[in-house]
Write a protein that binds this DNA or RNA. Structure first.
Lengths: 365, 365
DNA sequence: GTGCTTCAGTAACGCGCGTCAGTAACGCGA
DNA sequence: TCGCGTTACTGACGCGCGTTACTGAAGCAC
């Protein structure tokens, strides 16, 4: 016969005290006086029985689930291609664990369901929502009902605290670096369609850096990527066919890998013929050919910060409306000075080739 | 004044029935008779009040949390470098959602904590445990206490149902493919230290394929990788310095990227000088240079299968002790026939170069 | 009318805990 | 002795739901 799991009543009986006392002892309540002797008796009884409080009963009595939710609002493909998601999740869970919280994940592509019930059914105490684009209405409604919500990412004109990477500053740094190397015609491949805030912000950083250097924005130098390497290949291919430039800011490492392939397919060499700077610093970027100069985003810290902000909100503490995490330029081998080849080749005297793909050249594979 | 969230009692009052009736109606119980008229009254009242059952109360009353846990038992670095984890998690959440379940993630590196309390405190109804190596004791104990557990991965001699990719068969396919291309001296870089079952299995598949072709196993052709690209670079570098071979099976795409870099650093070209086959088919593999021929692992399906198996166990249905998911060889551009160069170069007459790295060559970056 | 069955709905209990109000015992000063 | 505060503990209620056993009423054959 399987023994029933022990309840606090069993512990009370075993220790010869009341259930109330058990609760006081095990919750370490400072405001009630318990003699050291009974405290010990209770602790030992609990130990002996292998007592573990029933989570649901506790939640019901205290009105707290000690759980936060992570809602992923991207498409399935986008999630699968997200190289930094695991790190972000780790940051979130670790922030949660420090506060005694657990994390519930809900991968809910747009239009595939509703996460409001997570909150309204009190399954979680709060929500980190990542990558929303169209459910502003739901968000605002939940926020107004008083539920703690933190946005991971950005969404203009929303009265919800958000935590994000400083995409604009990172992009500015990347492009400023290329400008510093002497480049003037710098192309930009976005990391996603511009409806995504991060894509728009990175493009804005690109424009700002050009502007600061007194260079006019040229629309023909911009092409949209879309999460995956294939889009980067296509975008770079289109740019090479359309116009000429000596450097490119590709706003995502994953997209950049595709772009590197397109340059190669066109017979060009990076950085000799074209300098490239990426964004994200995925773990493979250092092993691209050439190793990718890129902007590091602190993925773990991002999850951490989102978690901390949410927990603060749950605790009723004030939370800044917007937290931006800094990025960092990582110089590796994919960008070189104008008029100089990449150092890895050693033949500095050869001028940069003017890359151009004829209409008959091989397209994307 | 903030309105209190509605309870089933409120719905009952609003509909003019008892709470019991509300419960019967909203849970759509077939075994009790409710007139269509009152059914409608209750549903409408619930709708009007925006009623949402309190999850904890429900869990307490029914003894079911409708939640499963995913325990990640790898190191933090390993999780961060895992390119297929998001897909697996998606598969798991989607299997869960179909059954009305949610997923709780617990990233618990070895020796950093205890996941038994998740079960013992009834926070979850069951657990998918991924990548354990040393907590067999805990697992067996929980299993014996009757908790539903499914292993994602493999662990010998454990009486816990497991779901895994058929690593051995996949490796066999990869190596058989290289053999079919005429290669005889085939190196192997493992995807992890051999203490990891998946690494041992993939190496075993490599040996089996060689054996089937009547080729003796040569220990000097094997080098251990370790999750990241850097280890692949180092391993390939060591192999090139130590011996010669015309092909390599690198048991992870991430590790393979580093290996490709090492070949390049040694002045070799893939597949002209060396054929390479990877494992995993991460989303970037098709954009490596050259595009990586590899073994596709069904990451999403893996999560799906683990989830389904766990839910079956929770429902008390029998579950096979071991579920192995098939893999698939994806031929791309990183392997070529012996005596022929890769077709992309077009100069078939050049014999394969014998690659060898002098002791003065550049090492890992 | 009687006995039986089916239909429609309800009262009351229990899930396991947190917590408030209350109490008994025990000093301790005047 | 009384009054009062302190210490150490307990009884009982409530959290919001699911569910079992029960009650009336209606229908129906005899």
């Amino acid at each position: 016969m399987a023994r029933r799991r022990p309840t606090s009543a069993d512990v009370a009986r075993e220790a010869g005290v009341s259930r109330t006392t058990v609760s006081f002892v095990l919750n370490e309540r400072e405001d009630v006086a318990i003699s050291e002797a009974t405290r010990r008796r209770v602790v030992e009884a609990a130990e002996r029985l292998g007592y573990q409080p029933h989570a649901a009963a506790r939640q019901l009595a205290r009105g707290l689930t000690l759980t936060i939710g992570l809602v992923l609002r991207q498409s399935a493909e986008q999630i699968a291609a997200d190289a930094v998601l695991p790190a972000t999740v780790q940051g979130l869970t670790s922030a949660a664990r420090r506060a005694g919280y657990q994390v519930m994940v809900e991968a809910l592509p747009p239009d595939s369901g509703d996460y409001a019930q997570l909150l309204r059914s009190r399954r979680v105490d709060g929500l980190v929502v990542s990558g929303p684009r169209q459910d502003e209405a739901d968000l605002v409604a939940l926020q107004r009902e008083g539920f703690p919500i933190v946005l991971q990412g950005s969404l203009a004109g929303l009265d919800v605290p958000s935590v994000d990477v400083d995409n604009r500053a990172g992009a500015r740094d990347a492009v400023a670096y290329l400008l510093g190397l002497g480049h003037r015609r710098i192309a930009c491949v976005t990391n996603a369609p511009l409806a995504y805030t991060s894509a728009a912000e990175r493009l804005a950083g690109y424009r700002e850096a050009l502007e600061a250097a007194g260079i006019d924005f040229d629309e023909s130098l911009v092409e949209a990527g879309s999460f995956d390497a294939g889009s980067g290949h296509a975008a770079m291919d289109a740019l090479l066919r359309r116009t000429s430039f000596s450097a490119a800011f590709v706003a995502s490492d994953v997209v950049a890998l595709g772009a590197l392939g397109a340059v190669r397919a066109a017979g060009g060499r990076v950085p000799r013929d074209l300098s490239v700077v990426g964004f994200d610093d995925i773990s493979l970027a250092a092993y691209f050919d050439p190793p990718l100069t890129t902007i590091r985003v602190p993925a773990y810290d991002l999850g951490e910060a989102a978690g901390s902000a949410l927990l603060a909100r749950i605790a009723g503490e004030p939370v800044p409306a917007r937290t931006l995490l800094g990025t960092e330029l990582l110089v590796r081998g994919s960008a070189a000075s104008v008029g100089r080849t990449g150092s890895r080749n050693g033949n500095d005297s050869v001028p940069p080739t003017r890359l151009h793909v004829g209409s008959g050249a091989a397209g994307a594979s």
